[in-house]
């Protein structure tokens, strides 16, 4: 009897609560969507400051950095990519020092999550070097680890968007170090020199010839890096230049042209370097000259 008298009341109470929560949801969604609609209208109705430069100029500057130069300690004016490169190096070295001092001494035989991450990074590049160049790989593994870390972190660095003031007084976000053609050329050519060094170490003068055979390698490596990262940069510039494209799209563009590029370009450059290094440093056994047997008449 008691239960029968209580239950309907509770049932009614529950229904009321669910109705109230539904109403609240509807109201909050309407307020949220209304706010967005109002803001969108205001964005397009109220005129902003006029663009100081055209899209062509913006694109050209993104590629060539002729105007957006940054002063390096007041000594010389450099491209923002170089500043990004220095910052990436500082970030990586500080991270390495922290790991070296605080984490590596506490490494265990059964690794934790962070230790596993570090070991995976080291192990990945070491395995890449060993599998592609089984004969000489100690220096190669160290080099591709450094290059991989630089390209990966350097590409992701673009997402941080650290603001700097250029020499001409314009504020700008620091780009990826390798979107600067000088940076890409430096990495591409240095990789080529590393490959040549591997060839010389293993095969002496023959190693030089083997490396020179791939004379297009420094150009292809440099411009592959530059082109890949520049494409992302240009699309980002394009998207941010036009207000209408600045909604949602930057998320997709950012993921596509930054995160994926970071992974792909890291893998491509390190893989190519390891591959060519292995090829030129492979010690081939000398072929014995076969004596021609003159056929007796």
């Amino acid at each position: 009897m008691i239960l029968a008298s209580i239950l309907p009341i509770e049932k009614i109470g529950m229904e009321e609560v669910s109705l109230v929560s539904k109403k609240r949801k509807i109201i909050s969604w309407s307020v949220f969507l209304g706010l967005i609609a109002v803001l969108l209208v205001l964005v397009f109705v109220i005129p902003g400051n006029e663009k100081t430069e055209s899209i062509q100029e913006t694109m050209q500057d993104a590629v060539l950095h002729e105007r957006g130069l940054i002063s390096l300690f007041g000594l010389i004016n450099v491209n923002p990519g170089l500043i990004s490169g220095f910052l990436v190096t500082i970030i990586l070295l500080v991270f390495a020092v922290i790991v070296r001092i605080f984490f590596i001494p506490k490494f265990k035989y059964v690794p934790g999550k962070f230790q596993l991450l570090i070991e995976q990074a080291v192990g990945f590049f070491d395995d890449l070097a060993v599998s592609n160049s089984p004969h000489h790989n100690k220096f190669l593994s160290c080099y591709i680890f450094g290059a991989g870390a630089y390209i990966f972190v350097g590409t992701l660095f673009e997402l941080v968007g650290i603001q700097v003031v250029a020499v001409n007084g314009v504020s700008m976000a620091l780009p990826a170090p390798l979107s600067d053609i000088n940076g890409a050329i430096a990495i591409g050519c240095f990789s080529y020199l590393v490959i040549m060094a591997g060839g010389i170490y293993a095969n002496k003068a023959k190693g030089v010839l083997l490396t020179l055979k791939e004379f297009s390698l420094p150009i292809s490596m440099s411009f592959r890096l530059f082109g890949a990262l520049l494409s992302g940069l240009l699309v980002s510039e394009l998207v941010y230049y036009y207000l209408q494209l600045s909604f949602i799209l930057p998320v997709i563009v950012g993921v596509l042209f930054t995160l994926i590029h970071a992974l792909v370009q890291t893998y491509v450059l390190t893989m190519l370097t390891a591959l060519f290094y292995g090829e030129v440093s492979e010690v081939k056994p000398k072929k014995k000259k076969e004596k021609k047997v003159k056929a007796s008449i």
């Binding site: 450099v78 220095f86 070295l93 390495a96 570090i118 680890f145 870390a149 000088n182 430096a186």
Partner: peptide, 25 residues
């Protein structure tokens, strides 16, 4: 600037090798 990039990169590779890569390896 290419040389500056190279210098920066060499410092990074060397530093990472001595500080991180070698001890972990």
């Amino acid at each position: 600037q290419i040389l500056l990039h190279l210098l920066n990169f060499v410092i990074l590779v060397g530093g990472l090798y001595f500080i991180l890569f070698n001890p972990v390896k």
